[in-house]
Amino acid sequence: MCLKPGVADSTADSSEGLDEVLFLEEFCFPFLLRAQNADGGWGYMPGSASGTEPTCWALLALHGASNDDASEGAARLGPQWLRQAQLPDGSWPAFVGQQQGCWVTALACLALKAQQEARDSVARGVRWLCDTWPAEGGFWPRLGRRLQRTPAVVRQDSSLRGWNWTPGTASWVEPTSYSLILMKNLSGELLPPSSGKRVRLAEAMLYDRMCPGGGWNAGNPLVYGVAGMPRVGPTVWALLALLDQRDRPENRKSLDWLSAAFPEIQGPGSLALAHLCLQAHGRTVLGNRTSSSVLETSLRTRQAVNQFLMNVPVVAWAAIALSGVPDWLIRIED
């Protein structure tokens, strides 16, 4: 299986990079290909029912694989499953059978956007995202906050709205970031006129929800006046969504936090995502060591211990990170 060339690490010499290719070929891609269900989708674990999120990550990860028969089959059946899972209103549910679309809609559009025959699906998905507003800025929540006698537990500007995990709930960092990454990647003709306003509002919301010391958690930077602790996952997604604003001091501060946190990361999913983010922002990892080889060694060790808990999205994130910065992130900077 040959691989799409990733973004080269500036410190790597010609012999380095072999390990991560081996891990991709020996473990990540075979695992993902074996985990695909007969219906074309992927479940969160091999053998479990197909779901939208694992199918999206598997497709985005296998985008880096070669054109052999197995990956070709995956590339054909996977998008087909995704398109069939779309709801009439343009959104995607987490699982087939659910009647309501949710946060996975942005991921589904991202996974399908390269498919010419899926353009209509993507356009309907993006329209749904632009037409769907989180609940915190609605009339009743605003009235409730005005009438509240006690000071607010959480300090944030609720007029700044991004996207929620599920309809009828509030904006959070991760789903907002997914939608931003999508919208900054799409060509103009697929974006509804309201998308520009939504993007600007969502970016402002992300900066409003940043933890005082840099980085992001789910979306509560201050609770009872106490600074929230940032977490790797939301920090990565926010920084990737704001990749086109890398010189803003908030982003530099958050990258500093992520760089400092990197050596202590215990989970393979967080490790892969943090590496991807630092690489996308042009940061070196762990001084002058070759970052890809550090990542490969760490992932290999963790895979031997817990088998990544057989988690399809985690293996997909590992594959994406080892393949270099993907084009759906590079486009943000174009």
């Binding site: 969160y44 779901g51 999120e53 987490a94 699982f95 659910q98 949710c102 946060w103 609940a135 929620n164 995990w165 599920t166 009828g168 709930t169 509030a170 959070w172 991760e174 789903p175 789910a218």
Partner: peptide, 12 residues
Amino acid sequence: NCYGWPKNDLHW
């Protein structure tokens, strides 16, 4: 995977 992180439906 259905309700997000945090499980905000429960709060609302």
